[in-house]
């Protein structure tokens, strides 16, 4: 079994996909670091000071003014109100929500990429895990070995798990080291507030507590890894079912993008919360961001994702074992 897994890892490394992913991440991080630096600069010029309290206060005032406008949708208004109350809470407790430094950048980057960017990176590896064997014709060779088909698929799946972990860790490390060049590496112990809960459009601060930024980052990464695993498993299943890698990738892409779009407009279609792509933003729960559909919780999202995970795994193995290969 170990040999089979190593065989798969060897194929994976030979394709140099991980390297491509690293380069993509590095370029994007470079872009975002530059953008962030510019926005900090303009902010400082506008206010004439680099005091974070002043700029946070300014953000709150800006939000208050936007709330006064009558052309706001109810959902957007609610979101704004929640984030404003949260900012006020940070201000009242004298905690900087975005302590300058690489750790804060990584946190923002990971949180914002958890529902689309990291799943996309995972797709690059996962979507041709099985179908590429068809394309190359090597599947026949593989299946003629005196090993059970289930074992072959399992070895592929284990290789995939390892690759997903590597991608998540790589993204975090690259963004840490690259952004640190500009922002500095301090801030790992900066306090972060967590435990905000959103209920009926109101921000509940009774459960709030302080967490060091590095702990918070680890928790974020754990959740992002879980999301990446679910997406990887689903596209693994698709790559078993669909022979063409391009078609499989298209299917998964459509699902992911539709999730990003739907999340902004499903608040009244409550049964959409059973779709996996609506549940990908797990990190939002730690930050107290209102979920796309009222009533969604961290536990419900994880359960939905687990159900999809299990179903995808079952379908993948069932189909692969019974499939006619020609």
């Amino acid at each position: 079994m170990i040999n089979l897994v190593q065989n798969e890892i060897m194929k994976l490394l030979a394709k140099k996909r991980l390297l491509v992913i690293a380069v993509i991440v590095a370029i994007l991080v470079g872009l975002f670091t530059y953008a962030q630096m510019k926005s900090v600069e303009t902010q400082r010029e506008k206010l004439g000071t680099s005091d974070w309290r002043a700029s946070l206060q300014q953000q709150i005032i800006d939000t208050q003014n936007r709330l006064g406008s009558s052309r706001l949708s109810d959902e957007w208004r609610e979101q704004l109100q929640i984030s404003m109350k949260q900012q006020q809470y940070y201000l009242d407790n004298n905690i900087n929500p975005s302590e300058p430094g690489a750790p804060t950048f990584v946190r923002m980057f990971i949180e914002n990429s958890s529902d689309l960017f990291i799943p996309l990176l995972v797709l690059v590896i996962a979507s041709d895990m099985v179908s590429s064997e068809h394309a190359l014709g090597s599947v026949k060779l593989l299946l003629t070995r005196p090993v059970k088909r289930g074992k072959i698929l399992l070895s592929k799946y284990i290789a995939l798990i390892l690759a997903v972990s590597a991608i998540v860790a790589m993204t975090a490390l690259i963004s840490y080291f690259l952004s640190g060049l500009i922002f500095g590496y301090k801030g790992l112990n900066a306090p972060i507030l967590t435990g905000f809960t959103v209920e009926n459009g109101n921000l509940d601060t009774s459960e709030v507590r302080l967490v060091s930024q590095w702990k918070f980052l680890l928790m974020d990464l754990g959740l992002v890894w879980f999301v990446a695993m679910v997406v990887a498993t689903l596209s693994f299943m698709v790559s078993v079912l669909v022979r063409s890698t391009a078609a499989g990738m298209g299917i998964m892409l459509a699902a992911l993008v539709s999730g990003a779009v739907l999340a902004n407009m499903v608040s009244s279609w409550t049964s959409a919360k059973y779709l996996f792509m609506i549940n990908l933003k797990l990190t939002g729960y730690l930050n107290g961001i209102a979920p796309p559909i009222e009533g969604m919780t961290l536990l419900s999202s994880i359960s939905v994702l687990l159900a999809w995970w299990a179903a995808a795994l079952f379908v993948a193995f069932f189909a692969f074992i019974r499939k006619d290969v020609f």
Binding site: V168, M219, G222, L223, W225
Partner: peptide, 9 residues
């Protein structure tokens, strides 16, 4: 990462 996930929960 699995440990982090359970810790987050």
């Amino acid at each position: 990462l699995i440990f982090s996930l359970s810790w987050a929960l």
